[in-house]
Amino acid sequence: MKKVYEGKTKTVFELEDGNYLLKFKDDVTGENGVFDPGANTVGLTIEGAGQTGLRLTKYFFEILGEKGIPTHYVDANIEEATMTVKPAEMFGNGLEVICRYRAVGSFLRRYGMYAEEGQELDGFVEVTLKDDVRQDPPISEDALAMLGILSHDEYKRLKELTREIGAVVKDELQKKGIDLYDIKLEFGRAGDNNEITLIDEISGGNMRAYKNGEYIEPLKLGELVLSE
């Protein structure tokens, strides 16, 4: 097993069979000790966050698999906080795709002249470059195509998948009386036909969710969703 990447919230190892192993950490992104799924730095460490994040990721990836939505998920070991995944090629140096149902976070900071906090959004899809130095700048479809990161057809598919996955997660949370405000996803090209595939994770660490108007911490979100 060869270590190939040390990320903020996961360590990545290459396995002998060509698959990869993701080791989930207890670190979450944020600033000044406050969680923020869109932050570029590790803001705090929450004991058990890695296992809870993996448990929720496994839960959602298996639902998506049943619906025929392509993901890189193979299997997971909750006790060891590891997930085995199929190889996938990133778009450029990586993209983050956000599906927004409410005006909060960076959307509100940018568009606060026109948007009110918590205002409903109709599954607005936003793509940002993974670039810590430039604070993950938003990028348009045309710019992605012109820079050779993503073709127009790939962008269309990316947007479709994002809204489809966002809707699945939103519906699952709604069953527990939880409102999804936004979710951050990552995609790559996988397989012989370079199919656009969901990668990384789906956990409390990459979404904002509220219940009765109160924000739910990532660890608590996992507990609420996975409770009987």
Score class of each variant (00 low, 15 high):
residue 95 L to D: 02
residue 119 Q to S: 10
residue 204 G to H: 00
residue 114 Y to P: 10
residue 192 D to P: 11
residue 129 L to C: 02
residue 123 G to C: 00
residue 104 V to H: 11
residue 170 K to E: 11
residue 102 R to E: 08
residue 131 D to L: 06
residue 179 D to Y: 05
residue 122 D to A: 15
residue 153 D to E: 14
residue 207 M to A: 00
residue 145 A to Y: 09
residue 202 I to R: 04
residue 156 K to E: 13
residue 108 L to E: 00
residue 124 F to T: 13
residue 206 N to S: 08
residue 103 A to M: 11
residue 182 D to K: 05
residue 140 S to L: 05
residue 160 E to I: 00
residue 93 N to F: 08
residue 104 V to P: 09
residue 138 P to V: 03
residue 128 T to K: 12
residue 198 L to V: 09
residue 156 K to Y: 08
residue 95 L to R: 04
residue 134 R to Y: 07
residue 88 A to I: 07
residue 121 L to P: 11
residue 173 L to M: 10
residue 105 G to D: 07
residue 104 V to M: 12
residue 129 L to F: 00
residue 125 V to H: 01
residue 174 Q to N: 14
residue 123 G to E: 01
residue 180 L to F: 04
residue 99 C to L: 12
residue 188 G to T: 00
residue 185 L to Q: 14
residue 116 E to H: 14
residue 194 N to T: 05
residue 198 L to W: 01
residue 144 L to A: 05
residue 101 Y to K: 07
residue 101 Y to M: 07
residue 90 M to T: 12
residue 102 R to M: 09
residue 203 S to T: 07
residue 130 K to M: 06
residue 157 R to D: 12
residue 204 G to S: 02
residue 132 D to P: 07
residue 159 K to F: 13
residue 174 Q to E: 14
residue 155 Y to H: 15
residue 114 Y to N: 09
residue 199 I to S: 09
residue 140 S to Q: 02
residue 132 D to L: 01
residue 184 K to D: 10
residue 132 D to G: 04
residue 164 E to V: 06
residue 200 D to G: 11
residue 91 F to W: 10
residue 180 L to N: 06
residue 126 E to H: 12
residue 210 Y to E: 14
residue 109 R to L: 13
residue 111 Y to H: 13
residue 86 K to L: 14
residue 98 I to D: 11
residue 201 E to L: 05
residue 133 V to H: 04
residue 165 I to L: 03
residue 185 L to T: 06
residue 122 D to G: 14
residue 180 L to M: 11
residue 87 P to H: 07
residue 133 V to P: 02
residue 106 S to K: 12
residue 141 E to A: 15
residue 147 L to Y: 02
residue 184 K to M: 05
residue 141 E to M: 12
residue 99 C to K: 10
residue 160 E to F: 01
residue 159 K to S: 14
residue 106 S to R: 15
residue 168 V to T: 07
residue 175 K to P: 02
residue 88 A to E: 08
residue 95 L to S: 07
residue 162 T to S: 11
residue 186 E to Q: 07
residue 123 G to I: 00
residue 194 N to K: 12
residue 105 G to K: 00
residue 115 A to V: 15
residue 104 V to D: 10
residue 160 E to G: 04
residue 201 E to S: 13
residue 112 G to C: 02
residue 196 I to L: 05
residue 118 G to S: 09
residue 164 E to A: 06
residue 207 M to R: 02
residue 87 P to I: 06
residue 95 L to C: 04
residue 111 Y to G: 08
residue 159 K to H: 12
residue 114 Y to L: 15
residue 170 K to C: 05
residue 113 M to R: 15
residue 161 L to Q: 03
residue 128 T to R: 06
residue 174 Q to D: 13
residue 124 F to Q: 13
residue 152 H to N: 06
residue 114 Y to A: 12
residue 147 L to S: 08
residue 203 S to F: 08
residue 125 V to L: 03
residue 202 I to F: 02
residue 89 E to L: 10
residue 110 R to E: 13
residue 196 I to G: 03
residue 95 L to T: 08
residue 176 K to L: 05
residue 203 S to H: 11
residue 155 Y to S: 10
residue 125 V to Y: 01
residue 136 D to C: 06
residue 127 V to D: 09
residue 97 V to N: 02
residue 203 S to L: 08
residue 151 S to G: 03
residue 134 R to H: 13
residue 156 K to W: 04
residue 153 D to A: 12
residue 181 Y to M: 14
residue 127 V to L: 05
residue 165 I to F: 03
